[in-house]
């Protein structure tokens, strides 16, 4: 059982903001932490890891990591932490990176084989791809068999295919070691696949907390297809106007009328939706 009750003043891009979190987490939960950038997700993770100070209490399995302004050092906390990128030690081989944590060869080799890295154990980080580096980073985070595994947008720098592979590995290790995992993520699909519980932060406060399916479907799902994108260009072709919109990795052309085009500005966020293929009956009061 993990109880977190912390306060901290942050100085973000939008001026001062107070991070105020009161949270209980059960052993073995996989929590997704999401919300707009600057909402305090990473700070919460760093406070848990002991990389930043805060007021309040952090209790993990009946021992206090933070209480009465007394904080246990990051080194003494049972934490596995995975950074977004660039956290491997370039001077050590992959195996040495793992053994640097704890000299447990058996565990290191088991982790490497679970993530398919056995062949690369003597390579150096420089020769690895982004996905392989993050795998090593994940294995290294598990070397201490941590009570809590903290993942700070671990896959955001990877391409979609690599991300999918690593997602299943993260889930596999989470189950194998029965650890409690907290992951910062912006990807609804990633959150849906991995987590059992989702917490949404905004301006330093928890605004939603519940089962992942409920939180995601309520906030983002609907029967209509709609995608958010960025308007890149408005091209006039004869009598019509073509809007070029970027949605994720795709660039889409949409025909708009001259009248519609008047309201659009290049660079703005737009929502592309289909008008109903099949008629839908709406409740009269809506």
């Amino acid at each position: 059982m993990i109880n977190i009750n912390i306060k901290k003043t942050l100085h973000g891009v939008n001026g001062a903001m107070s991070l105020d979190i009161d949270l209980s987490i059960k052993q073995g939960e996989f929590i997704a932490l999401t919300g707009p950038s600057g909402s305090g997700k990473t700070t919460l993770l760093r406070v848990l890891a002991g990389l930043e100070v805060a007021e309040g209490e952090i209790e993990v399995n009946k021992s206090f990591w933070l209480k009465n302004n007394k904080s246990i050092k990051a080194q003494k906390r049972s934490i596995g932490f995975m950074h977004q990128e660039n956290a491997l030690f370039p001077n050590m081989s992959i195996l040495q990176n793992l053994l640097f944590v704890i000299n447990d060869l058996e565990l290191a080799l088991r982790l490497l084989s679970l993530t398919g890295l056995t062949k690369l154990q003597d390579s150096y980080p420089k020769t690895l791809s982004g996905g392989q580096k993050q795998r090593v980073s994940l294995c290294r985070a598990m070397m201490r068999k941590p009570d809590i595994l903290l993942l700070d947008e671990p896959l955001s720098a990877l391409d979609a295919k690599m991300r999918t592979q690593l997602q299943s590995e993260i889930l596999a290790l989470h189950k194998e070691f029965n650890t409690t995992t907290i992951m910062v993520s912006h990807e609804p699909s990633e959150i849906y696949k991995l987590s059992t519980r989702t917490i949404v932060l905004e301006n330093g406060h928890i605004i939603k907390d519940g089962k992942t399916q409920e939180v995601l479907l309520k906030s983002q799902g609907s029967q209509k297809f709609s995608f958010e994108g960025e308007l890149l260009e408005l091209k006039e072709v004869d009598v019509i106007i073509i809007a070029i919109v970027a949605i994720g990795q795709q660039i889409v052309e949409v025909v708009v009328s001259k009248k519609e085009a008047l309201d659009l500005k290049v660079g703005q966020r737009v929502i592309l939706g289909t008008k109903a293929f099949a008629p839908t009956i709406l409740h009269p009061s809506l």
Binding site: A49, H83, A87, N91, F100, M143, R144
Partner: peptide, 26 residues
């Protein structure tokens, strides 16, 4: 890289160990 130094602390290594085995060799 700050991440790398933090990673060393999070591996349970002290400042001195981090300087000697991570910072200096790099």
């Amino acid at each position: 890289n700050k991440n790398m130094l933090e990673a060393s602390y999070l591996c349970g290594k002290s400042k001195l160990q981090t300087i000697l085995f991570v910072a200096l060799p790099n």
